[in-house]
């Protein structure tokens, strides 16, 4: 349910940029790590709901989920962590640390210009 807060923050930033660019935003790219627990459908629903009647109405949101990386304590390999297979793919060790998760980022906005 915290997607509403994410959507509000997005709307605020995109609206400000839209005023600056004097152009209508048509789509935006967002990226986030696996542990940000953002659900695509819910964030789109929340964004659509609060964007009604603003220049952001009808915008498309593209959401990229970045996998979390693990670093092996045994062989130092860095790898994409998979929850179903919590092992280093190189040496099979279960001794690894999870690296910091990627934050939620508004990467870019696409505007329609005259």
């Amino acid at each position: 349910m915290h997607e509403t807060m994410v959507a509000e923050s997005l709307l605020k930033t995109i609206s400000a940029e839209s005023t600056k660019q004097n152009a209508k935003p048509v789509s935006a790219k967002i990226s986030c790590g696996m542990l940000n627990t953002v659900n695509d459908e819910i964030i789109r629903f929340a964004f659509d709901a609060i964007a009604k009647g603003t220049p952001c109405e009808g915008m498309k949101l593209e959401i990229e989920h970045k996998p979390i990386q693990g670093k092996c304590r045994n062989c130092s390999e860095t790898f994409e962590f998979e929850i179903c297979r919590p092992k280093c793919p190189k040496c099979e060790s279960e001794q690894f640390d999870l690296l910091p998760d990627a934050p939620l980022i508004l990467e870019e906005i696409e505007f329609e210009t005259e």
Binding site: S9, Q21, A23, I30, L104, L106, I109, E110
Partner: peptide, 15 residues
Amino acid sequence: MKKIVDIGKKILIAN
């Protein structure tokens, strides 16, 4: 015409 603007800003920066 379309124009892409790089933002690269953390969404939950206020928090």
